[in-house]
Design a protein around this nucleic acid. Structure first.
Length: 585
RNA sequence: GCCCCUGUAGCUCAAUGGAUAGAGCACCGGACUUCUAAUCCGAUGGUUGUGGGUUCGACUCCCGCCAGGGGCGCCA
């Protein structure tokens, strides 16, 4: 927002250094880390260190301060800055308080929903996430992927990319056949009712139990797999039907989570082309056919001359049936062909890191220059206390449905208590927003590389640094604005001395656009989750200390505008995180 | 054996190579006739696993070690 002034100052510094015969300093602007002050700062330790190294006898810290001091004197009175000082080797440039406040608030209100959004970059990126297996339940272990993928998609979109959200269903394979077998044998003719996710998941879990414990079952399932392979019309019909149920169930899940996809891929649609691709790889000498003694492999370490780095990628089983890799290779190509992508991102848990590198390396071998633009966005998994990984086989799962129901019920109790006069439907929608927000926030406010431990207590805890706190700040701002009649006063300069609370709030608001960029660059929603909380906290502080509606003009008008700006930014920030901000709670 | 991740307050986590390492939870003490108390204020709490190195400056980068987790040819 102060780019012009900043650029001017930079040029002056370069010029001054040149005049003094100093080497050109590498200016790196940081915000001044003292709360309640606005401005930019840079240090001169590097420049001083350079002098020291060139033989001059200088004490670096002292010299840095000298340089900063002489620059402060030289720059004094520069336009747009209220005060320029040298402290401990840093050059601090303070923006004019009223000017800064005015610009920030104006910009937020002028841009509204687009505040923080960058202009289109004309770069297209696909984000593949969720990737569920059909015929299985959706549990909390699957949740982080969806929440992260959705948030990253939103963030990239906000950062100026054209984003294509892709899902990739595992709709074929042994797990499906096991389900079909169990259905035919024990549930034939049943139709899903009520909680379809659970119904499907239960049949699968049951199938898996029978399969694991009984060799005879394994035999029958294998036989059924044979019929499937021969495209037995009855089996194919049942597959189609149950697959449709499953897709409907997942649609329900995604609707509940407020997540949408632009393109949905299926394993079944790339399996055949995958097998063809593999024979092509064999012909080209990229893959080695070790059948019948072995499988079809791409000996990556051998090809790249690396040692125990890329290992060996198995691309086809010895019996000719497909593996993940058989399908991921053609899918990657299909994505780039269909959409002319600039980047392709895979949101997949960290345990698949090696596998992802193998796929990208193999694509590189195949001559696809875009292989380097494929990126594995790895995240750690969600475990149960005691570092127990959720597994439907071991029955150690928390179903999403159960978590949401419990969280909503708890949130509803609180609304009931806080706002008994609200219509029931409103209470329920607030409870859903709060419950889902809390669930999402707890996963986004943690670095991707950190394991999330799920336990009911903290999952249902709405206190402290959590979504409801942020939503509540939004609601409070909203409430003031409603009382003010929703008419935001026209531009007013803050012609009074701003309080610390106002200053801090405005400063945090102004950080949003930068934090969007940083989040996008590193695929880290964490930064925005943190910022949203900090803005909310700062707003609550402001709310406590600064009367708005009772204040005298022109303070009143300025504060109303500030409240509107705060509401806007909190809303935008929650929005990219995929969290709904309710109007009341 | 090779590779990756993690280690910061009692607990869960933050911290652009930069100024005094910060939040939440828990615990203790305060604030509702007030724009919604799902809020705010105050107090307590640290040898950033460990030993070196790079740097003017290291929680952050590099190397070793310790501890925990994960991955490594026909699972997904």
């Amino acid at each position: 927002m102060f780019e012009t002034e900043q650029k001017n100052i930079e040029n002056k510094i370069y010029q001054y250094c040149h005049e003094q015969g100093w080497p050109e300093p590498a200016i790196q602007w940081n915000w001044i880390p003292f709360s309640g002050h606005w401005g930019i700062s840079t240090s001169f330790f590097q420049l001083a260190a350079q002098e020291a190294k060139s033989g001059k006898r200088v004490i670096v810290n002292q010299r840095a301060q000298e340089i900063a001091k002489s620059l402060a004197d030289y720059l004094g009175g520069s336009e747009g800055f209220e005060r320029i000082e040298a402290v401990n080797g840093y050059l601090n440039l303070y923006y004019s308080t009223s000017e800064f406040a005015w610009r920030v608030v104006n910009e937020v209100l002028a841009k509204g929903k687009s505040f923080g959004r960058k202009e289109a970059l004309n770069q297209r990126v696909m984000v593949e996430f969720s990737q569920p297996n059909t015929h299985k339940a959706f549990h909390v272990g699957h949740l982080r992927n969806v929440i992260l993928g959705d948030a990253v998609s939103n963030i990239l979109d906000f950062a100026g990319f054209e984003v294509i959200r892709a899902n990739y269903y595992g709709d074929i394979g042994l797990h499906v056949i096991k389900w079909l077998w169990n259905y035919l044998k024990f549930h034939n003719g049943e139709k899903p009712s009520g909680d379809m996710v659970r119904w499907l998941g239960d049949i699968y879990a049951e199938a898996d139990r029978r399969f694991e414990s009984d060799p005879a079952v394994q035999e029958e399932v294998r036989a059924l797999f044979g019929r499937w392979d021969r495209r037995d019309p009855d089996i194919v019909a049942l597959w189609e039907q149950s697959r449709a149920w499953s897709l409907e169930a997942f649609d329900q899940v995604y609707r509940t989570l407020g997540v949408r996809f632009d393109r949905v891929y299926f394993e079944s649609e790339v399996e055949e082309s995958g097998k063809e691709l593999i024979s092509d790889l064999i012909k080209k000498g990229i893959a080695r056919d070790e059948r019948p003694d072995g499988a079809v492999i791409v000996p990556l370490d051998e090809i790249f001359g690396t040692k125990e780095k890329y290992r060996v990628l198995v691309v086809l089983r010895s019996d000719g049936t497909s593996l993940y890799a058989t399908k991921d290779l053609p899918l990657a190509i299909k994505k780039f062909e269909e959409y002319k992508l600039d980047y392709s991102i895979y949101v997949i848990d960290v345990r698949q890191s090696l596998y992802m590198q193998q796929i990208f390396k193999t694509l590189e071998l195949m001559g696809y220059s875009w292989a380097k633009n494929c990126y594995h966005l790895a995240y750690e998994i969600v475990n149960l206390p005691g570092n127990v990984t959720m597994s439907s086989r071991d029955g150690t799962v928390v179903l999403l449905e159960d978590l949401i129901r419990e969280a909503v019920a708890r949130a509803l109790m609180v609304v009931q208590q806080k706002n008994p006069e609200l219509p029931q439907a409103t209470k329920e929608s607030i409870a859903r927003a709060v419950a889902l927000g809390a669930i999402k926030y707890s996963m986004l406010a943690r670095d991707n590389t950190k394991i999330v431990t799920f336990d009911w207590n903290s999952a249902l805890d709405f206190n402290g640094q959590a979504a409801p706190y942020i939503q509540y700040a939004f609601v409070r701002a909203n409430s003031i604005l409603k009382k003010a009649g929703e008419s935001i006063p026209a531009c007013v300069q803050a012609s009074y001395d701003l309080s610390q609370a106002e200053i801090e709030l405005i400063e945090l608001i102004s950080r949003f656009p930068n934090e969007v960029q940083r989040s996008a660059k590193e695929y880290r929603p964490l930064y925005l989750a943190t910022l949203a909380y900090e803005i909310a906290r700062s707003f609550n502080d402001f709310y406590n200390q600064c009367p708005v509606l009772q204040a005298e003009e022109p303070i009143r008008s300025f504060r109303i505008r500030l409240v509107a700006a705060a509401r806007q930014v909190i809303g935008n920030c929650l929005g990219v995180l995929g969290i709904i901000a309710p109007d009341v709670m």
